[in-house]
Design a protein around this nucleic acid. Structure first.
Lengths: 212, 212
DNA sequence: CGCATTTTTGACCGATTGGACAAACGTTAG
DNA sequence: CTAACGTTTGTCCAATCGGTCAAAAATGCG
């Protein structure tokens, strides 16, 4: 039994299009209100259709959410997947940080949706974290550990290193309201991401202790 | 007109105690489900009383939330308030990071409640961020800027520095499920906060570039 | 004790929720 | 045309929501 399709047969062109339209609207609403806070009516209105019509394409609110978050996790982990042993370790890490920050800038809804789910104990995606996220992080942690052993970067905890990159970059999506308010109208505009990029590069590479 | 008290007169001993009991239960529920996701019934059950009884002490769900979050913000900002010009700048920052990490460890519910509210655009606490948080951050940013000018710490953006401290420390409360799952049963136990403390100290002081 | 006040609860209310359903509508192939 | 299929919607439903209310129970106090 297919859990997502309204019919067993192959999807029509309209079904494909409308499902995408709905998922985009659902991302808006879920990201802003969380799963429980979001209503099907809100999503339907954002997608420009009636509620029963929406439920013709997705059998339930839960189906929308899981479809959304499974797809999202793939794009979300892409930058980490690209981390490899080809280039210079320092510039590999630098570009990973940059890519993650760009994702926070370009896909804030995805970041917030994910954060919302984790905050509430990841009730719907625990298995994804165990089966997909953890193995990937373990693999990359081993890679980073190799760099440390080879003296390419300072020796430290690679798992917490990855956590700190996630935390600092996603902060600009998840806590956007706070960031913009605290920075104020001048510094909180579009340039805040470039400021953040410069700051984070310095933090991760040099730290704060004064030179000399 | 008092917005919180059930009666105009002075609070009885029972009122004081029950209100605290309710707030503690409400913190549990709000932190896990967010404002909209939490129900008065859930809070009442967690507090061990009936719903009408709870509403005798707080006139509405909103009243519980605002009481909770206003009180919370004060304890939350206390570590930043303590940041001053008395000691050595490097050890001042180091102990600020340590204190923030301890708060993430000891008050994860408060951290999650705050994160939940910000994630959804801070609809109920925008004024607190503008009137309390921003001025405090601006003041401390100026203090840090002085340290940079004096060559005590590396020159960088003090606002983003504060953001990165918040992000990295609160991550261990807000994303606790993810952190523990990724670290696994061995490394994800009680020791994870000491590991995090060691890692963060190194990150903020030294960065990742290898020495020499 | 007896009375007033505080505390607690069962019953209830209107609004909103996720979702079901059948009927209607649109489209296309014969 | 008609039959078949895909699409859309108005209407409805049971469950749950935040909150009210009157009356009962507990408590404080002279």
């Amino acid at each position: 039994m297919d859990a997502e399709t309204p019919v067993r047969r192959r999807r029509t062109r309209i079904q494909t299009e409308k499902r995408e339209l709905i998922l985009d609207a659902a991302l808006d609403v879920f990201a802003q209100h969380g799963f429980r806070g979001a209503t099907i009516d809100q999503i339907a209105e954002a997608a420009g259709m009636s509620k029963p019509n929406l439920l013709y394409y997705f059998r339930s609110k839960e189906a929308m959410f899981t479809t959304l978050i499974e797809r999202l996790l793939q794009t979300w982990l892409a930058p980490l997947r690209e981390l490899d042993d080809i280039g210079d370790p320092v510039s590999e890490l630098r570009s990973y940080i940059r890519r993650k920050l760009e994702m926070a800038r370009d896909y804030p809804r995805e970041s917030r949706l994910f954060a919302n789910e984790i905050l509430q104990g990841a009730p719907r995606i625990q298995h994804l974290i165990e089966d997909e996220l953890k193995p990937l992080v373990d693999e990359k942690a081993a890679l980073i550990k190799g760099w440390m052993k080879a003296g390419k970067i300072a020796t430290t905890d690679p798992w917490h290193l990855i956590f700190s990159i996630w935390a600092t970059t996603q902060h600009y999506a998840d806590f956007d309201v706070q960031v913009r308010t605290v920075l104020g109208p001048d510094r909180g505009g579009d340039g805040r991401f470039e400021d953040a990029a410069r700051y984070l590069e310095q933090l991760f590479l040099e730290g704060l202790r004064p030179k000399g």
